[in-house]
Amino acid sequence: MTETEFITKIVPYAVEDMQRSHIAASLTIAQAALESGFGNSGLTVKANNLFGIKGSGPAGSLSMRTTEYRNGQAVQVSALFRAYNNWGESVADHSALIAQGVSWNRNLYSKVVGVDGKTAAREIAAAGYATDPNYASKLIQLMNTYNLYQYDEIKEDDEMSAEDKQKLDSLEGEVKELRVLLAGLTASRDTLKTGVQEQGQAIKGVTERVVIIEGRTVMNMPAWAEPAVQAAVAAGLLDTPAGGSYDFYRILTVLNRAGLLVTKKGV
Rank of each mutant, 00 (worst) to 15 (best):
A25E: 00
S26Y: 00
S26C: 08
S26G: 07
I29G: 05
A30K: 07
A30C: 11
Q31G: 03
A32Q: 04
L34N: 02
L34S: 01
S36T: 01
G37C: 05
N40H: 02
N40L: 00
N40M: 13
G42Y: 12
T44S: 13
V45T: 14
K46E: 14
A47G: 10
A47F: 08
A47M: 07
N49C: 06
G52T: 00
G55S: 06
S56I: 14
G57T: 05
G57F: 11
G57D: 09
A59N: 11
L62G: 01
S63Q: 14
M64L: 11
M64N: 10
R65Q: 14
R65Y: 13
R65D: 13
T66F: 10
T66W: 06
T67C: 03
R70W: 10
G72A: 07
Q73E: 12
Q73L: 04
A74Q: 12
V75S: 08
V75R: 11
S78N: 15
A79N: 09
L80K: 15
F81P: 02
R82H: 02
N85K: 12
N86S: 13
N86V: 10
W87A: 08
G88W: 10
G88Q: 01
E89L: 05
S90G: 08
S90Y: 03
V91I: 06
V91D: 02
V91S: 04
D93L: 07
H94W: 07
S95T: 10
A96H: 12
A96R: 15
L97D: 09
L97W: 09
L97I: 07
L97N: 03
I98H: 10
A99L: 15
A99T: 10
Q100E: 15
V102D: 06
S103Q: 14
N105C: 07
N107T: 14
S110H: 13
K111Y: 09
V112Q: 03
V112L: 06
G114C: 12
G114Q: 08
G114H: 11
V115K: 01
D116N: 15
G117H: 10
G117F: 00
K118S: 12
T119V: 05
A120P: 05
A120Q: 07
A120V: 08
A121S: 15
R122Y: 12
I124N: 02
A125E: 03
A126F: 05
A126I: 02
A127Q: 07
A127W: 01
Y129Q: 05
T131C: 08
T131H: 06
P133R: 02
Y135W: 03
K138P: 05
K138S: 03
K138E: 08
L139M: 09
N144R: 12
Y146I: 00
N147P: 11
L148F: 00
Y149F: 13
Q150V: 14
Y151S: 07
E153G: 11
I154R: 09
K155N: 13
E156M: 13
D157S: 15
D158F: 04
E159R: 15
E159F: 13
E159M: 15
E159V: 02
